[in-house]
Design a protein around this nucleic acid. Structure first.
Length: 486
RNA sequence: GGCGCCAUCGUCUAGCGGUUAGGACGCCGGCCUCUCAAGCCGGUAACACGGGUUCGAUUCCCGUUGGCGCUACCA
């Protein structure tokens, strides 16, 4: 086991979406490939926006994707708690240290005052306002005296001069002039730590040594590095992933519901497909291979080969990827995954017998590669109904309501009543010779039969379908369809 | 506005000074075929622009333009 420790630190203020999922995946792959640890830490300090529902949804989606965390909620670990809101007491000591060393100072400017000064500034200048360091020059004595008076204060980090640079695993060397940053608040007037500070303290305490996150954090990085150093710690390694853009060209965000992972689960996508797709967003295997299992990704994946270009999410390619993965599932596996959907729709019961299971597998086998998503199984619900089929009116008009259709169905009914065994082979023989006898191509006979039996113009192979349905249902449906004919 | 990052087919990408600029998705056409999928074959389509450097730039450098991100006592 190596000592690589990575983490995902989502805030439960929305559902897990593709962007966060990809960051999670890259962290997970990195930990797995290195034999390190993947820590899940929940940044729920924003009590207004964080909810337990979101937290549970995130955990569920992570599990569904197969991104198991080694430490975090529910599994615990040596450096918990893993909910930031439960780590509250840990920060005060660090703030005291920074105050004592002079790396931080009390700021008595109220938010209102700051707002006022900011407002005055923006009306005259185009550049953004930076904290004017009004309280930075307060002596320690003055500062303590004011605090004793009961004046409320925030704690600001005294940003040193010079430059801060780091070698990012994907971005290369990134350098900032420290004068770009104002003295950031690390503790609010109520004593709670702000994001950048809490992250650093938690990462230190959780022994995180490799930070893999979205490049929207890139300007936070120098601030955090300064904090790590002020706390006497060596900063971790950083890798900033390019962002994923929605098709409108803007970053994927929590507010775009269509890209929530849970949504794809409900639509019948496979987790393997999602994982495979997001892995390839900004990264390509050296041999150009595109269909990669989690295991293959683990060995192939290289953080340093990630492109720095933001990539646009393409639902079409995801859909294609899903088809590839559905095709890879064997019949038993496919059936297992289909079962919950069929149950939900009441098409099969909670308990199924061995015979039902066997029949279901035959259905799945006959449907073959026609499922683009698991949910597409519902297109085939006529397999599961006793007698009634919903007839598609367009199909009926196009096929059954044509001259001759009635004769074909009547003839077929007779032939199929008489056919000795209802196997695909003998059905094919019977139907083809029936068509010959009528002087028609097989297709001309099969299509009315298809509509009669399935209700639509598209279905799995007709002979297999008839065989599976059985003589009784087939004849019933032909009779019923006869009402539409001619 | 400032700072940072980025720039190859519509999209995801390969390329790492000399290539007919390759692959995948999508789209179009064909084959197969009982329909629909799947599959197979073929086609469409790109180096943002301008300067350099070089015998030679998609590739290196600079600039322009464009895109995205960040710029809170949010995370």
């Amino acid at each position: 086991m190596s000592d690589i420790r990575v983490r995902l630190a989502p805030s439960p203020t929305g559902f897990l979406h593709l962007g966060v999922a990809r960051t999670a995946l890259y962290n997970w792959l990195t930990a797995r490939a290195a034999g390190g640890s993947f820590v899940l830490r929940i940044e729920d300090t924003d009590r207004q926006r964080s909810t337990d529902e979101f937290l549970q949804a995130i955990l569920e989606d992570m599990r569904w994707l197969g991104l198991q965390w080694d430490e975090g909620p529910e599994v615990g670990g040596s450096y918990g708690p893993y909910l930031q809101s439960e780590r509250g007491t840990n920060y005060a000591g660090y703030i005291e240290r920074l105050l004592a060393s002079g790396a931080a100072y009390r700021c008595f400017c109220s938010p209102e005052e700051l707002e006022e000064r900011r407002g005055a500034h923006s009306s005259t200048e185009a550049a953004a306002w930076k904290y004017d360091r009004k309280c930075e020059s307060l002596s320690t004595e003055e500062s303590i005296a004011l605090a004793r008076e009961g004046r409320s204060f925030a704690v600001r980090f005294r940003v040193p001069g010079g430059r801060t640079a780091f070698d990012d695993v994907v971005q290369g060397r990134v350098e900032f002039d420290n004068s770009e940053f104002d003295d950031l608040v690390i503790a609010r007037s109520d004593g709670t730590p702000t994001y950048n500070f809490a992250v650093v303290v938690d990462d230190i305490e959780m022994r995180i040594n490799y930070v893999i996150r979205g490049s929207d954090h890139i300007t936070n990085t120098p601030r955090q590095i300064m904090l790590w150093r002020a706390l006497g710690q060596e900063p971790p390694e950083f890798a900033h992933m390019p962002l994923i853009l929605a098709q409108d060209g803007l970053v994927l965000s929590k507010r775009r519901g269509a890209v929530a992972i849970g949504e794809y689960r409900r639509r019948g996508y496979l987790p393997e497909a999602i994982v495979n797709y997001i892995a390839l967003l900004g990264w390509a295997a050296s041999d150009g291979g595109e269909i990669l299992s989690p295991d293959e990704l683990t060995t192939e994946f290289e953080l340093s080969k990630i492109s720095r270009t933001a990539s646009t999410f393409d639902p079409d390619k995801l859909a294609w990827m899903n088809v590839q993965w559905v095709k890879k599932l064997d019949v038993a596996d496919r059936t297992d995954r289909l079962l919950p959907i069929l149950r939900e729709e009441g098409l099969v019961g909670d308990e199924i017998s061995g015979d039902e299971r066997a029949w279901l597998e035959r259905v799945v086998n006959v449907i073959d590669d026609r499922l683009k998503t698991l949910r597409d199984i519902l297109e085939f619900d006529w397999f599961f109904l006793a007698t009634d089929v919903d007839y598609d009116s367009i199909a009926v008009n196009k096929v059954l309501a044509k001259p001759g259709a009635g004769d074909i169905l009547a003839g077929l009914h007779k032939e199929l009543s008489a056919v000795s065994d209802f196997t695909p082979e003998s059905l094919e023989l019977t139907i083809r010779s029936f068509a010959d006898g009528m002087g028609l191509s097989a297709g001309k006979v099969i299509q009315p039969l298809r509509v009669a039996v399935t209700g639509g113009t598209a279905s799995p192979g007709m002979f297999e379908t008839l065989s599976l349905l059985g003589r009784e249902k087939v004849l019933q449906r032909i009779e019923k369809a006869g009402e539409f004919a001619d």
